[in-house]
Write a protein that binds this DNA or RNA. Sequence first.
DNA 1: GAGTGGTCTAGACCACACA
DNA 2: GTGTGGTCTAGACCACTCT
Lengths: 236, 236
Amino acid sequence: MSEFLPRYARVRASLIERLASGEWAPGTSLPSEIALAAEMEVSQGTVRKAMDSLVADGALNRVQGRGTFVAEQTPELANFRFLRIVDGDGQRVIPELLSWTAKTEPADDRIAQDLSLKKRADLHRIDRIRAIDGTPALLETIRVPLGVMPGLGQPDAMPNALYPWYQSEHGVTVLRTDDRLRAVAADADAATALSVPAGTPLLECVRVAYDLTDRAVEHRISHILTNAHAFSVRLG
Amino acid sequence: MSEFLPRYARVRASLIERLASGEWAPGTSLPSEIALAAEMEVSQGTVRKAMDSLVADGALNRVQGRGTFVAEQTPELANFRFLRIVDGDGQRVIPELLSWTAKTEPADDRIAQDLSLKKRADLHRIDRIRAIDGTPALLETIRVPLGVMPGLGQPDAMPNALYPWYQSEHGVTVLRTDDRLRAVAADADAATALSVPAGTPLLECVRVAYDLTDRAVEHRISHILTNAHAFSVRLG
DNA sequence: GAGTGGTCTAGACCACACA
DNA sequence: GTGTGGTCTAGACCACTCT
């Protein structure tokens, strides 16, 4: 083990650990920079540098004069941060939930590999249909390892945005995702669910989501009808 | 005009201006932090903070012990930074150029709006076909305002990666892009060019590229055959 | 050894929020 | 007014590169 990290990196690691442990709840404030600096026996500037990187990663929010807060996933923010659906004018739209089912199943080899799990590890599986501007446009198959969210059984209710729910109900904060995008033809099931002819081009998004400890916490396959909308991305 | 910017922001703006003016060529080193601090009459820490943000934006590279360098677009880097095509195993692939044509045309209303140009402003237009693993898979229609790259006439040769060429030959450095992704059906022309049946699903990518002064410098419509490959994106 | 970026400190002052 | 984050400074020391 090499422990020759700069101090700000050790402060950062310590903060991540304490955030992941739930020591500070989402939306609440952290101790002040001066207090943390005293506690960790470093200067305020070093704490600041560590926090800068966590703010950049979206794990913390700072408000001048008020304090530093654990970033809270809200449906509005999470939707636009991770699922940037826009209409023809570039205006963001938010899909609404139409229907869903939930069950448990073992991971197939591909999913297990994507999520760095053992073969046939237990998964929660959720299938959802969502609508954009009133028409069904989004088919999602979501898989979450049982080990990541043991409490996610057969849910009573299903929220529209999942990431805020993961955070508030299961203590899992999604900070980033890796998405692989392709164009595919709608198969018979998808065509029925979306009320389009089989073969209609759909945008397929295969995503792995990671939490603040860089653990893979969700696998999601989305099929999106992009006749009137687009998936917006900023690169660079 | 509000000029009440913090000093590091003014230093950053000054550096961007001098980078855009070509005062420091791509790949060459800037004066040292100490020298710039003395010249601009601020402390080294302030120059450092300004440079931090430019490094984060990809405009500069720093190497400990050697100096700070103007980021140079290389075909390898530009390809993976802005066009992350991966195969089924997640390995990146680099398309190779098959054929191209170039001409000049006026902007239609949609393009003019996307590029913030006057209606019917003059554009260079380049059409290209590129292959992935030997099979045609990428159709691109590229439009660049004459005002942005006056020297881009009828080019003698066409490089595979355009952004390094924009930088070295036309002094334009692309730092970020906004992409809108959709799934569409191949029309007759696309189907012929890609040797697939009409109606085959293609990934459509409509992109606007911005330089380091946040000026829109390129409009690019790509149609990508994603039977064996995917467009990889990291969000968060 | 000289010069560069990288880290860290201690302290000053400013801008803002809240009681 | 008190406490918070935001900016800025001057200086110290370390790690690395090149000569």
